[in-house]
Amino acid sequence: MHMPAGTNDTLSLITAKALWMRRRAFQMVYMAQLGHPGGDFSAIDVLATLYFGVLRFDPARPDWPARDRFIMSKGHASGALYTALCAAGYFPESWLDSYMQPRSLLNGHPNRNYLPGVETNTGPLGHGFPVAVGVAIAGKLSGSDHRTFVLTGDGEQQEGSNWEAAMVAGHRKLSHLTLIIDRNRLQQGAGTEETSGLDPLDQKYAAFGWDVAFADGHDIAALHLALSAPPGDRPRCIIANTVKGKGVSFMENKANWHHGVPNADQFATAMKELI
C-alpha cells in the first residue's frame, strides 16, 4: 500500500491512525502495568506517518524482498511499533491485549520471530541502526529501489555503535537509508544535554557525510514532506523534534514517564485528552 504524497486525505488518515495508536498503546501499558509510554508517544506520529503515508509494504507478504523496511531501533517503545503494525494489518487487534503477558508474541521488546512486520530484534540500544545499514547495503548491491528507515531515540545516540554505523553509511553513500532521531531531549534519568550532550547532532551527521534535516516530530504534514522526499545521493538524517509523552498533559516532557505506568485515574484522564 503506497499512499499518494501529501494529500489532505493522507494527512487525515495519518492523524486518525496516530490518535488510535496513542489510545491503544496507553491501554496496553495500563493493562500490563509495564511499558515505556513516554517514548511511545514521542515516536507515534513518526510511525503513523511512515506506515500510512510513506512505506511500501504488503502485510500479506511480510518477507516481500522489495518492501521498504522500517527498523525500530528504540525497541523499548514497543507500544508504538505494535500498534503501528496492527493498524497496518500485520495481525489482529486482539493480539494487542496480550502485551507482555506470559508467552505473548508481544514481548516487551520486539522479536522478528514472534511477529510479522518486525524486521529485526531490538531492545539493547544501538543495534537497529547497524542492521539498517546492512539492509541498505543489500539493497544497493541488488540494485533494488527499496528504502530503509530506522528510528533511534536521542539518548540512544550515546551508544558508540551508532557512530560506527553512521560512518559506514556516509562512506558508502547509502542514499536509500533514512535515519530518524526521536529528539525528545529526555533519556531515562534526565535530559540528554545534562547527561552526555548530543548537540549539535545536525553538524555531527553532516560531518559523517549525511544530508540532515529537522522536522517537527508531531506536525504530520511536515513529517510527511520530510519522510516522503525521494532519495538523494547520500544517506539522510531527519532530526524529529518531539515531546516525550506527547498528547497527555501530565506526561509531556516528564522523564519519569519513560517507563512510568498509569493508575486508573491517570488512565481515565489520558483517555479524555486523547480525542
Partner: peptide, 17 residues
Amino acid sequence: AEQVMVGVGAGLANGGR
C-alpha cells in the same frame, strides 16, 4: 568497527544475502 560489522551481517541477511 566490529559492532557495525556484525549488525551489517544481520541486515544483509534481512536483505536476502
